[in-house]
Simulated assay, not measured.
Amino acid sequence: MRRGSFHYLIVPGWHGSPEDHWQSHWQRTLPHSQRVEQADWLQPQRSDWVAELSRGIAGAPEPVVLIAHSLGCVTVAHWAAQAAPDALRRVRGALLVAPADVERPGCPGPLRNFAPLPLASLPFPSVLVGSDNDPAASADRSRAMGKAWDSQASVLSGVGHINVASGHHCWEEGLAYLERLQSLLNEQARRRA
């Protein structure tokens, strides 16, 4: 699949992604990309976030590849669990990075309305990247989310929440996971041909 044949939709997590976050860098460098903007980044409401994601997908000029981080991953799962078949067909795949476990002990209050985590298989190919020292989700919980969502899951060692605070600005290494997703999409297209 050629990179230009779909639209990258960046789905940030809680607090959004600042200018020096890898999602912002990727948005500036990947062709055909835009960001889902939320009305309230600090007090997220699941229904509002899912509705904004739905609008972003519906408004994209081409089929979509989602690039989600943290609470954005959970938003993608909630959207997929309730979206209409026509909307689901607009999404070709998703890269899910450092998904937030909104059911964990001590989960910040503003994120709790995203629980329970949807545990249905995503109806499109996905690659999940977690970390063994992410305060937002343990390695076991990241693997469990990957299994439930039928994602190709990788748990990296010592990379934290894969955000600015853990030293990930451009996160060039992450592009390998986007390439892995694109390979899955190519395989799927060959099987359907």
Rank of each mutant, 00 (worst) to 15 (best):
S142P: 00
H25M: 05
R143A: 15
R141C: 12
P123K: 00
V65F: 02
S54D: 15
E52I: 08
H32P: 00
S54N: 12
V65L: 01
F124Q: 04
R55I: 14
P105C: 04
V129R: 05
A68D: 04
L42K: 14
A148E: 08
W41Y: 15
W14C: 09
E103V: 06
P31F: 12
V11L: 04
P108H: 03
L88V: 15
A81P: 07
P110Q: 04
C73I: 03
S131G: 08
A120P: 04
W26N: 07
Q82Y: 06
V11W: 01
M145R: 06
V127D: 00
A83F: 07
P85R: 03
L9V: 12
S17P: 08
G56I: 09
V76A: 01
S24M: 07
G72P: 00
A94N: 05
G130H: 01
R141H: 04
H21F: 06
L128Y: 13
L96I: 14
D20H: 12
L128S: 07
H78R: 00
A84D: 14
W79K: 09
V65W: 05
I67W: 03
L122N: 08
P31H: 03
D101K: 01
A83G: 10
P99N: 07
S33T: 01
P44R: 10
W14G: 13
G109K: 07
L122S: 10
H78I: 09
H69L: 00
K147Y: 13
L95A: 12
R141M: 12
A81H: 11
S24D: 07
P44M: 04
S33M: 04
C73Q: 07
S54T: 15
L119F: 13
T29F: 08
S24K: 03
R28S: 15
A148M: 03
G16Q: 12
H7N: 10
A84Q: 13
E52R: 13
D48L: 13
D20Q: 12
W14Q: 03
R46T: 11
L128R: 02
A137N: 06
A98D: 10
H69C: 05
G130V: 02
A68G: 04
G109L: 13
G146Y: 02
R28N: 11
T75L: 06
E62D: 13
A83Y: 01
W149H: 08
I67L: 15
R35L: 02
Q27F: 02
A58L: 13
S33Y: 09
G72L: 02
L30V: 11
A115L: 01
S138T: 14
Q27H: 10
S126W: 09
Q45F: 06
P110T: 10
L88A: 09
D132H: 00
Q34N: 15
S138A: 04
R89S: 14
I57G: 07
S121T: 15
A58F: 10
P116H: 05
P44E: 00
F114E: 05
S131M: 02
L117C: 08
G16Y: 01
P31N: 03
P63S: 10
T75N: 12
